[in-house]
Design a protein around this nucleic acid. Structure first.
Lengths: 213, 213
DNA sequence: CGTTATATTGATAGATATCAATACGGGTGG
DNA sequence: CCACCCGTATTGATATCTATCAATATAACG
């Protein structure tokens, strides 16, 4: 099992399902690309769910983003031509492989990068100025909005990532995340059962971000 | 004095110092652009020092970056065509004004955005996984390296920003930043006197990031 | 030179991390 | 297909870190 993580990420050869479009399938826990690998392609997520993570000089790991359907993965590698993060499938997934120099025009690339910059500013705001419950609320609202945009329920969903993933993403510890879930449930803002979340009071959730907690 | 902050940011008309190149001068505390303004130009810093900041729904302010000579300001506005941050001069400064659609080729734009994405990942790592002294160390090393690249001393420099600015940038409170400065000084890693900083033991500073503090 | 912003330091409170024990659940092998 | 087992999650008790409150001290600015 541990071996799975050691396989070179190119082990699964992309397959040509439609003329001119490469598709790659990944099993849960498989790595789409790893730190240090050359960045030759971007990946548009067809289905599934990913996280990206990075480690610092002391080996501390940080989850940087979560990616779902229609999201574009791989922008991290454009500055240096090498990937600076690992991308890991959190469930069986399928991505469209797009050569960096290919169909994605230069202008679109800039637009995607600009969006990524904007998203990251939001993450920095969260990490820099929100306390633990606020961070979790912000995370849930963001998830809810993204799912909604994809046509899924905005009030009820399954978390694809572990508490540890959420904690790392939010700059907290997993126990704290767990406590905050329970806390929000006690306050009747949400209903949680493991990875299943239902937003029961969206107004109150949004109020948390406006007025603090 | 307070009025200064209320002046529209376009008050100071850019002047044409060289044929084809617009330059704009700003006094300390003056705003180069503000949240919500259309993003028509990027700014290359000729001299001086800037911070960018953002406020969330609850009005909490977050300093996002510091900019110095040769840095490119304004990338924040490219996603939505409106600026999402305020840019404020921390000392008398001069910037070259570059129309977004102008001389900066599309490819260069993408490259700059990619670099910005990479820089922000580092900020997220800092906020997400370092404790207070480590954050300050990371900040000082980054500053030192950037100044060095510009030909200034990497071991001795003047901070252009206040403790509150540093604190916001690092997701801390200003008192904590002040304590961490004193702490690093007690450990003989640096010598501080107000805004003047001297790095006395760079090896030890770097060790903090490798081994924790 | 006075006034105000900025910085330092101390005492204390509050939030989150850490340590630990238990419960839960999903994947795997029998 | 079921039972087992290990990864995951919850919860409690306590420790640690950072924020807050407060009092000076210092420096920058008009």
């Amino acid at each position: 099992m541990l071996l799975m993580f050691e396989l070179p990420t190119a082990a699964a050869e992309p397959v040509r399902t439609q003329p001119g479009i490469l598709t790659r399938r990944l099993a849960r826990h498989e790595r789409l690309f790893a730190v240090g690998e050359p960045c030759q392609s971007l990946y548009s997520i067809r289905s599934g769910f990913f996280k990206t993570r990075m480690a610092d000089a002391a080996g501390r790991e940080q989850v940087l983003s979560f990616f779902m359907q229609a999201d574009l993965l791989g922008l991290d590698g454009l500055a240096s031509e090498l990937h600076t993060v690992d991308a890991i499938a959190l469930e069986d997934s399928e991505v469209a492989v797009m050569p960096v120099a290919g169909r994605l025009a230069q202008a679109n690339l800039a637009a995607e990068l600009a969006k990524e910059v904007a998203r990251q500013y939001d993450v920095i705001m969260v990490l820099g100025s929100l306390n633990a419950p606020e961070r979790l609320v912000s995370f849930l609202i963001d998830l809810s909005q993204r799912l909604s945009r994809l046509g899924y329920s905005s009030t009820e969903f399954h978390l694809r990532m572990t508490r540890a993933d959420i904690a790392s993403y939010l700059g907290l510890k997993l126990e704290t995340v767990s406590r905050m879930f329970s806390e929000l449930q006690r306050g009747s803002l949400i209903a949680v059962e493991g990875k299943h979340v239902r937003i029961t009071d969206r107004g109150a959730l949004e109020a948390v971000l406006r007025a603090g907690y």
